[in-house]
Design a protein around this nucleic acid. Structure first.
Length: 574
RNA sequence: CGGGGCGUAGCGUAGUGGCUAGCGCGUCUGCUUUGGGAGCAGAAGACCGUGGGUUCGAGUCCCUCCGCCCCGACCA
């Protein structure tokens, strides 16, 4: 029983000044966590309580699916991570350290290497597969910018699983089992979520889906079609393209357009000076970038911005991408800022990538690569050719669903889970092979599956809180019932104690506010802030043999006869 | 890493270059009080983030560093 009189807990009346999101504010105020450094938190008894419950649900669902738990160190040697190149590739986000002898170590940001090596050390036959193992571990990533309290920390708890199969069909099965296990896990945790495809089909990459918990403070943006259920990360959204134009276009015409370096000014000049009657979507925006040191130009309709995240996710093979800056323009005087067009790409030595809306045969108004001049009737296929199409333009609410053409909605969410068909990358690098039925050596194919455990705590808080505090689902609340005893007489306290013990006897967790010195107001506020689902109040009405029962979530209040309290509570929890 | 904001007691905050750094919450003691963060009386608690500078005098002005938050870049 959690007794408020002795519980290591101090609630705060004010929001901490450095917290911006609700989960952060409330978890600190209600005494679940305390900040230690940027993106690093201590967990107090209430916080540990909730965290353990989330872990328990995860463990139960993993075990039910037949996955086995293992546990790796958080402190790891460099060597395996060198073999997979991640000692380098992970960059500054990797916490690196040395021991007294000067050997390199790291704090694990994720454990693909260790899992792969563990299986390699134990198994060598196809008969041992399939296998899925998992751990719940503290992970470390030196995030460039930790933020939003526990949503994006530098130290966090993650459940990560890995599946090992002989072939793609097996991987598909293991992936499906994880997907199902995640669905039951998140359902039990009371989370609302969407399963969203994380990679575009165009990439031809392996399968990857994210479990996104919608909430306004989320960092991920996703696209959802309410009609057909199409759901993708915004980076993976593919553009619905209407049929290409086939009409003949007049030849290119170069126009005088002094002082029109922006799309907005171009539209105005075209309409006023040339009576074109167009909007920005008829113009072609040429966004210059540096991709791994080389200039590229990305073409999007003038009414859309380039979404750098989308572009980067869809430009395969490019490691470093940034916009042209003033220095680049200074170096390349042949790129006329504000008047760039695709017609001279070859001469300028720039690779062209086009948004799919720039269909072959479409005609555009764009820069003439000469200061103060634009060109119209610039036709894709006739006047310029692109090196490839790429999803680069921003996605907007109301854009057409690529599957059913219905306008899509855009929402923000917290990524609470990610399942991913890894393939053979790690198995190859670390030489994880087994002998198949013909005695031949085969590289194992893997899947990787993560759940952000601490992040799930934050996501649940974000999805359920209200203006007076946290509102936990019963499954993970610190206690199912929060009992408040008020008054100066002993009766409410002794009665509350008795009922608390009875409830516990039925396996119902109880938090008992047995503080004699605290005023009723304080106890009510604390109960509401802490967020257990049922609140029982032993006070005034006890004289009539009644107890007040409140549902935290709905705020609903009722009087229950003392004799019926236990059965009533038990019924509510079923 | 770029831009912005902020560091004063456990938390929230006030503080024209000028006396002993103020207030609320919380904490401790005593009395009173017990259905909505009670009242009274008292108490403890602050290297005013750090180092330097300007000044007769710095919490306050200048510089350095450190830390925290927000936007962006980044985020298997």
């Amino acid at each position: 029983m959690l007794r408020m009189s002795t519980l290591f807990l101090r609630t705060l009346r004010d929001d901490p000044s450095d917290a911006a999101v609700a989960s952060h504010k409330l978890l600190v105020r209600a005494g679940y966590i305390r900040p230690i450094a940027a993106g690093i938190f201590s967990w107090l008894p209430l916080g540990v309580n909730v965290l353990r419950k989330v872990e328990r649900v995860i463990r139960e669902e993993m075990d039910k699916a037949g996955f086995q738990e293992v546990h790796f160190p958080a402190l790891l040697p460099k060597d395996p991570y060198e073999k997979t190149n991640r000692w380098e590739d992970y960059g500054p986000a990797l916490f690196r350290l040395q021991d007294r002898k000067g050997s390199d170590y790291l704090l694990g940001p994720t454990h693909e290497e260790m899992f792969t090596l563990m299986v390699k050390g134990e198994y060598s036959s196809y008969k041992d597969l399939p296998l899925s193992i998992y751990q719940i571990q503290t992970k470390y990533r030196d995030e460039a910018r930790p933020r939003s309290g526990i949503i994006r920390g530098r130290e966090f708890v993650m459940k990560d699983s890995y599946s090992f199969d002989l072939d793609d069909a097996g991987l598909e099965v293991s992936y499906g089992k994880h997907r199902d296990a995640y669905i039951s896990t998140f359902d039990r945790l009371g989370l609302k979520y969407n399963i969203v495809s994380a990679m575009s089909g165009a990439m031809g990459g392996s399968k990857s889906e994210e479990f996104l918990a919608p909430c306004s403070t989320g960092e991920d943006t996703y696209v959802l079609c309410k009609k057909c259920g199409y759901a993708v990360n915004v980076e993976a959204m593919s553009t619905k393209v209407s049929a290409g134009e086939t009409t003949e276009h007049p030849p290119i015409e170069v126009l005088d357009t002094p002082n029109t370096p922006t799309i907005e000014s171009l539209v105005e000049v075209m309409n006023k000076k040339y009576s074109a009657n167009i909007d920005a979507s008829k113009t072609l925006k040429n966004v210059l970038l540096i991709a791994d040191g080389n200039p590229i130009s990305v073409l999007v309709p003038g009414d859309r911005e380039v979404d750098l995240k989308r572009l980067e996710a869809n430009l395969i093979g490019v490691k470093e991408l940034r916009l042209f800056d003033d220095e680049d323009f200074a170096k390349r005087k042949d790129f006329v800022k504000g008047y760039v067009g695709p017609q001279d790409a070859k001469r300028l030595g720039v690779k062209l990538y086009a948004d799919p809306r720039i269909t072959i045969g479409s005609s555009w108004i764009t820069g003439a690569n000469v200061r103060d001049k634009h060109a119209r009737n610039v036709v894709h296929g006739r006047d310029f050719q692109v090196d490839g199409f790429v999803e680069a333009a921003e996605v907007r609410e109301g854009d057409a669903c690529p599957k059913c053409d219905t306008p899509v909605i855009i929402d923000r969410a917290i990524e609470i889970g990610h399942i991913f068909q890894l393939g053979r990358k790690y198995a190859e690098a670390l030489e994880l092979t087994v002998l198949d039925s013909e005695g031949k050596s085969r590289v194992v194919t893997m899947g990787s599956y993560g759940i952000g455990v601490t992040r799930a705590v934050a996501a649940i808080a974000e999805q359920t809180y209200d203006e007076i505090g946290l509102v936990w689902p019963a499954e993970i609340a610190p206690a199912k019932v929060h009992i408040v005893a008020t008054g100066k007489d002993d009766l409410p306290f002794t009665t509350a104690e008795k009922v608390a013990l009875e409830l516990e006897g039925k396996g119902i967790e109880v938090m008992l506010d047995d503080r004699r010195e605290a005023s009723p107001g304080v106890k009510f506020k604390d109960a509401e802030l802490i967020g257990n689902p049922i609140i029982l109040i032993f006070g005034k009405s006890l004289a009539d043999g009644k107890v007040e029962l409140r549902i935290r979530k709905s705020g609903e209040k009722s009087e229950v006869a003392l004799a019926e309290v236990v059965s009533k509570v038990a019924a509510l929890l079923n």
